[in-house]
């Protein structure tokens, strides 16, 4: 038996927003530790890794490990039926071929339940080794979203160049060229408005705008985003999810032919 209760179901709505542009379907692996998901997009260029710890939920029970293959368009239809302040309970029996979503209004006067069919998916997991990244950039997530959106008007690729002075995002194309430089913030009132850079070695890498823009669909989950880069390895874009865990996106760099 699997049962997870979440007092504010808006978190799960935001998680779904953050993955549904990259993935059509995904397997949610449920265990005693929590809910995990790892899936590559269709083109195998990017990967989504989601971790929601069991202790973040208001109630969590998972007697046996359970892998739920879910069509994300179907789940989106169901989650649209929930109010942001509804209390959500997800329930599935062991070896079930369906999962139930129950929404209760705060005053408990309205209770809805939606049963969704699970699907069988081929599980493809990538082994991602622990990596000491040369540059770790932390910045406001809204600023990162804005930069990706602005630069995508100029070209298909963004060059991210990090030195200890700051980080530069550049794009070029038919219209011309665009450069956005961010320096480390000297002092800020709010931690979430800070730009910080931990640099061992300077790094310059090129990435597809389209994927970066998809990653920024997670902006609502966290006020800060962390970019981890090393030469010749995928970029990691991480958003913390409050008391639950995180969503990480991995993106293979573009390389010169």
């Amino acid at each position: 038996m699997f049962e997870a209760r979440l007092v504010q179901c808006s978190m799960l709505k935001k998680v779904l927003e953050a993955i549904k542009e990259l993935l059509n379907e995904a397997t949610f692996d449920c265990s005693d530790a929590g809910i995990q998901l790892q899936a590559m997009d269709n083109s195998h260029v990017s990967l989504v890794s989601l971790n929601l710890r069991s202790d973040g939920f208001d109630k969590y029970r998972c007697d046996r490990n359970l892998s739920m293959g879910i069509n994300l368009a179907s789940m989106t239809k169901i989650m649209k039926c929930a109010g942001n302040d509804d209390v959500l309970t997800i329930k599935a029996q062991d070896n079930a071929d369906n999962v139930m979503f129950m929404f209760e209004s705060q005053n408990q006067e309205k209770v809805s339940d939606y049963d969704m069919k699970l699907i069988n998916l081929d599980q493809e997991h990538l082994g991602i080794p622990e990596t000491d990244y040369s540059c770790i950039i932390k910045m406001p997530s809204g600023e990162f979203a804005r930069i990706c959106r602005d630069l995508s008007q100029f070209g298909e690729s963004v060059v991210i160049s990090c030195t200890k002075e700051g980080v530069k995002f550049s794009a070029a194309g038919d219209v011309g060229a665009a450069n956005i430089k961010l320096a480390q913030t000297a002092n800020v009132d709010k931690e979430e408005e800070a730009v910080t850079i931990e640099m061992q070695e300077p790094v310059t890498l090129t990435f597809a705008c389209r994927y970066l823009n998809s990653f920024t669909k997670a902006t609502a989950l966290s006020p800060q985003v962390q970019l981890s880069m090393s030469a010749d390895v995928p970029l990691v874009v991480e958003y913390k999810i409050g008391d639950f865990g995180h969503i990480r996106y991995y993106l293979a760099p573009k390389i010169e032919e």
Binding site: K254, I255, E256
Partner: peptide, 14 residues
Amino acid sequence: TPIQNDLQEYYTLV
């Protein structure tokens, strides 16, 4: 123009 690499160039299936 640079070409897009595949993630599986860096990580292996487990």
